[in-house]
C-alpha cells in the first residue's frame, strides 16, 4: 500500500524500470513478496535493508540472472523501457548487455586485466579493430578509477589484484559493454575509504549517462549518492522515498529503526 502511494508521488522523472508485484521463490521459499518499485532514469537508486532481506534477489530479477539459479521462480511483471523483460520473445543475452551488473563478490576472470575488460566488447563486436578495443579498455579502466594503478600491468592476471582493485576491475568490465543500466551489489564492500570515495565519484559521474541501482549496507553512502532509496525488510519493500526525505523523516518505524542503527 505504502509502496504504491510513494511511487505516484516520486514519479516526476520518467522511470526506465518498473517492477510490479514481483515475487521470487527459491523452491518453496518465498524470498520476495509482491515487490513493486519504479526506477527513475539517469538517477541513482539505493536499495538498503538488513542482510537476507532480498536486495540481491531483486537486483538479479532486473537482468534475469535469477534464470540461472536452479529452482528459482519469478512472478510478477518487470518492464525495462516499457517492455516486459520476462516476455517469451525477449532475449536475456541482449537484456544483460543493456543491464550490466557488478556482483557482491569480485569475480574477475582468471585472465589478464586487459582481457577481462576486453571480453564483452569482443563478444558483442563493439570494437572494429585493435585500436578501438584498446580505447574502450583504457577508457573503462579510467572511468573505474583503476587505470593509474594497472596501466603497466595490463597483461598481468586480473586475479592477482587486491580485493578492492578486483572490484573496480569488475566495474570497468561492466562499463566496457556500455550498458544503459548498471546494477551494483555492494560494490564498495571490499574497498578502503579512498577507493570508496573514488567509486562514489565514479557513480555520480556515470549518472549522467546511466541509470544506476546500488545495493549498499552503508547508510552514509546511500545518503551521499542516491536520489531515491528503497528499504527492504523480510522480502518486502517497507518504504520508498526520495533519499533525503527517507533519511530525515522516515514514515515507517522499521525504516527509522534501521537507518538509526537500532536493528538489522
Amino acid at each position: 500500500m505504502l509502496a504504491k502511494d510513494m511511487n505516484t508521488v516520486y514519479n516526476d522523472t520518467k522511470s526506465i524500470i518498473s517492477a510490479k508485484d514481483v515475487s521470487v521463490f527459491y523452491g518453496e521459499k518465498r524470498a520476495l513478496k509482491s515487490v513493486s518499485l519504479d526506477i527513475p532514469e539517469n538517477q541513482i537508486t539505493a536499495l538498503i535493508g538488513p542482510s537476507g532481506c532480498g536486495k540481491s534477489t531483486f537486483l538479479r530479477c532486473l537482468n534475469r540472472m535469477n534464470d540461472t539459479i536452479e529452482n528459482c521462480r519469478v512472478e510478477g511483471n518487470i518492464t525495462v523501457d516499457g517492455q516486459d523483460i520476462y516476455a517469451p520473445h525477449v532475449d536475456e543475452v541482449l537484456l544483460r548487455a543493456r543491464v550490466g551488473m557488478v556482483f557482491q563478490k569480485a569475480n574477475p576472470f582468471p585472465k589478464s586485466i586487459y582481457d577481462n575488460v576486453a571480453y564483452a566488447p569482443r563478444i558483442h563486436g563493439l570494437a572494429k579493430n585493435k585500436d578501438e578495443l584498446d580505447d574502450i579498455v583504457l577508457a573503462s579502466l579510467e572511468k573505474a578509477g583503476l587505470l593509474d594503478e594497472v596501466k603497466d600491468l595490463l597483461n598481468e592476471s586480473g586475479t592477482g589484484l587486491s580485493g578492492g582493485q578486483q572490484q573496480r576491475l569488475c566495474i570497468a568490465r561492466a562499463l566496457a559493454v556500455q550498458p544503459d543500466i548498471i546494477l551494483m551489489d555492494e560494490p564498495c564492500s571490499a574497498l578502503d575509504p579512498i577507493a570508496t570515495a573514488k567509486v562514489e565519484e565514479l557513480i555520480e559521474e556515470l549518472r549522467k549517462n546511466y541509470t544506476i541501482i546500488i545495493v549498499t549496507h552503508s547508510m552514509q553512502q546511500a545518503a551521499r549518492i542516491s536520489q531515491k532509496t528503497a528499504f527492504f525488510h523480510l522480502g518486502e519493500i517497507v518504504e520508498i522515498g526520495e533519499t533525503e526525505q527517507l533519511f530525515t523523516s522516515p514514515n515507517d518505524k522499521r525504516t527509522q529503526g534501521y537507518i538509526t542503527g537500532r536493528f538489522g
Binding site: N63, M65, T68, V93, L94, R96, A97, G100, M101, F103, K105, N107, P108, F109, P110, Y119, A120, I123, H124, C170, R173, A174, V177
Partner: peptide, 13 residues
Amino acid sequence: PDSIRNAALALGA
C-alpha cells in the same frame, strides 16, 4: 566456481 559463469552471463555472453 559459479561466479565465473555469472560474470560472463551478466556481461551478455
